[in-house]
């Protein structure tokens, strides 16, 4: 299926950009006329993925984070968050709730939040070359409106 709209942005892995990433995705998603609840699901999920890049992918340097958004006629919104950082040696372990390598004030719930608030989460990672997280969220309100 071809996307009806798409957008790509790239920004440095500075924590100030967590908020920017949420705003960009919210603005893009507005094209699917989401409910406030759907937006409120999407924003923390994006925030978690971007925070992971900042905290884990580039622990000692500022690297690039890519954000690709696509929307489809069936109401699916797909957000791909890419980095070219250290990669995740064991994706399954990283996705385990409460598992963290981020220090005592990190809850280890980033992937749990993504999985709870999105319809589908895919993670591809290679140690040493980076990680791609894809979040899929169906904007139901639009689907209902068209019926």
């Amino acid at each position: 299926m071809k996307p009806v709209n798409e957008m790509r942005v790239q920004f440095p892995s500075r924590s100030i950009n967590e908020r920017l990433a949420r705003s960009v995705v919210s603005s893009f998603a507005a094209g699917l006329d989401p409910t406030l609840d759907e937006l409120a699901d999407l924003r923390p999920a994006v925030s978690e993925a971007v925070t992971n890049c900042i905290v884990h992918a580039y622990p000692d340097c500022i690297g690039k984070i890519g954000l690709q958004m696509r929307m489809y006629a069936n109401g699916r919104l797909s957000v791909k968050i890419s980095d070219w950082g250290v990669g995740i040696p064991d994706v399954q372990q990283a996705m385990t709730p409460l598992y963290t390598t981020g220090g005592e004030d990190r809850a280890g719930l980033g992937f749990s939040v993504m999985e709870s608030f999105c319809d589908k989460v895919r993670v591809r990672s290679k140690a040493g070359s980076g990680t791609v997280v894809t979040l899929d969220k169906y904007i139901r309100s639009r689907v209902t409106e068209e019926v």
């Binding site: 949420r22 924003r43 923390p44 925070t51 004030d105 990190r106 809850a107 719930l109 939040v113």
Partner: peptide, 16 residues
């Protein structure tokens, strides 16, 4: 107005 899992970490740390 907004919170992600960083808020949970903030609570857990203050609890400790």
């Amino acid at each position: 107005t907004f919170m992600d899992s960083s808020g949970i970490g903030l609570v857990m740390g203050r609890y400790r």
